[in-house]
Structure formats: C-alpha cells, structure tokens
C-alpha cells in the first residue's frame, strides 16, 4: 500500500460521502444521474464478489463493504426516498449503449475465462464509463450545482491517484494489471474536460455552467 493508493481510496470515499450528504441534507437528488449511480452499484457488486472467496486484508474487506453499502443507499435515495426530486427527464443516457459493449469486451479480453474473473473484468470496464450518464446530464442541462462538482472532482482525483499508484507499483513491485491500467487511463481522460472547468470556474467561486 503506497501513499497514492491510500489517498486515492480516501478521495473515492470522500466523493461518495459528499454525494450522500448532499442528497440527505438537501432532501433532493436534482442534478444527480441515477443511471450513473446504478452503474456504480453494479460495478461494486460485480467486483467485490471476491469478498466471499478471497481475504486480502481487514482494510480491503471493510472498504469494500462500505463502498457497497454507500452505493446501494445512494441508489435507494434517488429511486426510493427522494424519487420525486429526481431529474429523470434529463437522465436520458441509454444504458444499453454502455452495457452491451462492456459485457462483450469482458468476455473477449480478460485474465481468465471464469465467472468471477469475467465479472471482475466487467466491473473494471463498466467503471471506466459509468460516469458518462452524469456528464451527459450536465452537458444537457448546461449546469451543475457546486457540491455536485466537488463530488466529480474527488471521483476524478481518485482515478488520477490510482494511475500514480500503478506507476509506483510498476517501479517498486514490477506489478501491473493491464486491464485495470488501460481502463483506468480511459476513465481518467473522461474527467479531463471537467477538471478544466472545475479549475477555471468552480475554484474561482463561479457556478459550473456551460455556454
């Protein structure tokens, strides 16, 4: 465990908590893509099936359980408790455009042709595109609440820190996981445009709005 990895995990956890607290305090999930949140719940579910088969560390187990719980609570807030406040009209990204290619690719390009391994691969590919419904929603409405942009910032920061973690691991342990690295780099690229807007607008006290 290196410093990039731990900071990456903290950043990921912070992003998830920021989103949950925002929904809870405002009693509203306006501007949040429920579809992205469903995809993240699916990502954690398919990736963390190894909770039942492999023990890595207490840290690993606890974090996986927290991520799973938070993901399901978020989905419940959007589609259950605060359903009336959700922006389903603007959350119009077609999930099959992501799920079909991701499923196909996970069968074609994986480490082992076993159920657990294919599901793990599916989760890695799916995570790399899971934020797209959220970014699509922002581009459609042309704006995002500042707190939503903080959520996206920490989610993007987590991805960037994981890349630093992989560079570190490659040099110190001679370890790299090609599937994770390629998908991780693709995923981080999706955040670049957003990072630019975050730095030039949100950090200067302006609301994120698109021209």
């Amino acid at each position: 465990m290196n410093v990039f990895r731990i900071l990456g995990d903290i950043s990921h956890l912070l992003a998830i908590i920021i989103l949950l607290v925002k929904i809870w305090k405002s009693k509203s999930c306006a501007g949040i893509s429920g579809k992205s949140q469903i995809l993240f719940a699916l990502v954690f579910t398919t990736r963390y099936l190894d909770l039942f088969t492999t023990f890595i560390s207490i840290y690993n187990t606890v974090m996986k359980v927290i991520f799973l719980l938070c993901a399901y609570i978020t989905v419940y807030m959007i589609y259950g408790k605060f359903r009336k406040t959700s922006d389903s009209e603007n959350d119009s990204f077609r999930l099959e455009f992501l799920l079909v290619p991701v499923t196909g690719l996970s069968f074609l390009e994986n480490h082992n042709f076993t159920a657990l391994e294919i599901l793990w691969t599916f989760s890695i590919y799916l995570e790399s595109v899971a934020i797209l419904p959220q970014l699509f929603m922002i581009s459609k409405t042309g704006e995002a609440e500042t707190i939503t942009t903080h959520y996206l910032f920490f989610l993007g920061l987590y991805r960037a820190l994981y890349i630093a973690n992989w560079i570190w691991r490659y040099h110190t342990e001679n370890f790299y996981d090609q599937i994770a690295v390629v998908s991780g780099v693709v995923q981080t690229i999706f955040y670049c445009d957003f990072f630019y807007l975050y730095v030039t607008k949100v950090l200067k006290g302006k609301k994120l709005s698109l021209p």
Binding site: D50, T54, M63, K64, N165, N174, F175, Y176
Partner: peptide
C-alpha cells in the same frame, strides 16, 4: 510482464 495476482485494489 503482466503477472496476474489476486485483485488487491478497490
């Protein structure tokens, strides 16, 4: 080379 180890990352 791409050595496959258990997935220890989150």
């Amino acid at each position: 080379h791409a050595l496959h180890v258990p997935h220890d990352e989150l």
